[in-house]
Amino acid sequence: MSTTERRGDPAVLSWLPIVVMAVVAAMDLTAGPQAGFLPLVSLGPAFAGLIGTWRRTVLIGCAALLLCAGLGVYDGLFDTRRGYTAMASVAGVTLAGALAASTRMRREAELASVRSIAEVAQRVLQRPVPRRVGRLQVAASYTSAVAESRIGGDLYEVVVSPYGVRVIVGDVQGKGLAAVETAALVLGVFREAAHDEPGLTAIAARLERTVARDAGGEKFVTAVLAEIHTDEEYVAFLNCGHPAPMIIRADHSVDFPLPPAYALPLGMGTLGGDPPRPYRADFSPGEQLLLCTDGVTEARDAEGAFYPLEERAGLLDVPDADAALEALRTDIVRYARGPQDDAAMLLLRYRRE
């Protein structure tokens, strides 16, 4: 459903007060003064205050007063209190509508300012990933479960390091500003560690210490780290309680590389358990790697069935990576009848020569 369909056509809404006053005038002229339709002229400025500016509301109110005066004279209502009561009603509604419109306009301006700040914060927190890295083509997608929101607790990043192309996709437990702050912290540490640390295990250890120190055991982050080596045609993974990555092979078969042992999410290392261990999977020219958060894998339809990601992998068989990822995102939203949770996706294609 488009924005215009949800909010109504602005051109149609702008004419609504005038149409309402015309209908009331026609009813008054047809039914006569005894029907008592004249006070309904105040509906014009009332609707104007809901959908227009305060200046337009005042103009509509002035027109309503003139119309009310004309009808009152025509009906002979100013010989009694009815005409003056109707005029007072229109004037009062006009004043209230103008005040309401002024308050609404001020709040809309504040909301626009907040959205602008949120967009800047999103660009700082979730920088655009490089579209091409050597023989890799990269595309990213982020869908927020909160209407009009552009930032959340899901995260992704691609870093070109001396040790290969390193990637992270993660999901911070919880919602709101606290989750955004933790996501920003994780991304900052990953961007630095990806250049400094020779192995994924060392990167995960730094992330674990950072999340544990920052969250104090009250928050955790599921994440999958990847290190892609196109020269040797393999990808190394390290999974910390995150959904498995998906590799679409050149023959269109689908593979979900699983870790040798499941590790706890970042920030929960003090609870014990096996530490995360890296593992490898073949990654050859013509193949695709999709990393995503549980907003994708746990999306449910009306009957509660999970999104069949493996069955819908064919949606990614589109020449342009961004268009392919958008097709998958649209299908997920349609399947779940709207976003149920934040969903981040990162698609990496190993291009042939």
Rank of each mutant, 00 (worst) to 15 (best):
Q340P: 02
F78D: 04
T230I: 13
A46R: 03
L66S: 12
F283A: 06
Q34P: 03
Q288W: 13
Y307N: 12
Y262I: 15
L347T: 05
V318P: 07
R123F: 13
P276R: 07
G217K: 06
T297Y: 09
Y74T: 11
L38I: 06
V159M: 00
V180M: 04
K175M: 06
L266S: 01
E218T: 09
F37Q: 07
P10I: 11
F220N: 00
C240Q: 05
E227F: 10
E233S: 13
L40E: 08
T85A: 09
V20C: 14
R6I: 15
L346N: 06
V333R: 07
L238V: 13
R82I: 07
A96M: 10
P10D: 09
P319N: 05
V124L: 14
L125M: 12
G314R: 13
E227Y: 08
A281V: 10
G153E: 00
A261V: 12
G49T: 03
R106I: 08
L264D: 05
A313E: 10
P128W: 08
S102F: 13
G176Y: 05
V165L: 02
P276F: 02
I51V: 14
G304M: 08
A343R: 04
E197V: 02
G44F: 04
V158S: 00
R132C: 12
L291W: 08
K219F: 08
Y350G: 09
R131M: 13
A48N: 00
Y262T: 14
R351S: 13
G52I: 05
L325E: 03
E110A: 11
G61E: 05
G267L: 01
G8L: 01
Y156S: 01
M21W: 07
E310H: 14
L155E: 00
L346V: 10
Y262F: 15
G70M: 12
A22D: 14
R81L: 12
I60M: 11
V211F: 02
D251V: 13
L325N: 07
A261E: 15
E157V: 01
V133F: 04
L111E: 14
R337D: 15
C62I: 15
Y335N: 02
T270E: 13
H242I: 06
M268K: 03
V169I: 00
A250H: 14
V172D: 01
A202C: 01
A86I: 02
I228N: 07
A327I: 03
V146G: 07
V120R: 14
A193T: 04
A48I: 07
D294A: 10
A139Q: 05
A183Y: 00
P260N: 14
S2C: 07
L99G: 03
L111D: 14
I247H: 04
A263S: 06
L43T: 15
V158G: 00
L155C: 01
S149E: 02
M268I: 02
